[in-house]
Amino acid sequence: METFTGKVWVLGDDIDTDIIIPTEYLALKTIDEMKQYGFSPLRPELAGLIKEGDIIVAGKNFGCGSSREQAPEIIKALGVKCVIAKSFARIFFRNSINNGLLLMEQPDLYDDMTEGDIIQVTVNEHVEYQGRFYQIASLPQNLVDIISAGGLVKAMRKRNGLD
């Protein structure tokens, strides 16, 4: 099973999609142009600080609000390896799977986590932080299929005989 380590940024409960990317930037042409505004209503400096391979740990209901798919795309474009939260809003969850952004639900890690610390993630198994192990559930098979195809676009290309 895939294992990786990363530095953690801690965000709170109910991080909504207007915080992840405000509506005023949604008509910018590309995700690359938009990503500098990621999380700007809450922490304007954050998008500039996140480095490739970093991890976001958050509270409950991460990604609540609008259906904007730019939200997971921006998080991915900023280089975030995965988001670990107490829970995720449903549209954000679907959009993340379809774009290959890894999400994990974990009820306790957020309460113990200090920003800037390093964690080690073993996908579909557990997170290790300061010598303690936090269990994570595995995903249903139909979602694993989409992720392993490389996202929904690739799954459809395969269906249409293109790849």
Partner: peptide, 30 residues
């Protein structure tokens, strides 16, 4: 619909829900 407030059509007893644009593209095809 590509909007979270697609839940509105439940007012007439329809099952309606918001999705992202990638899923919408795949529904338009399939």
């Amino acid at each position: 619909g590509t909007d979270s407030h697609t839940t509105t059509y439940g007012c007439v007893g329809a099952f309606s829900s918001g999705i992202g644009y990638t899923e919408m593209a795949s529904i338009l095809g399939t």
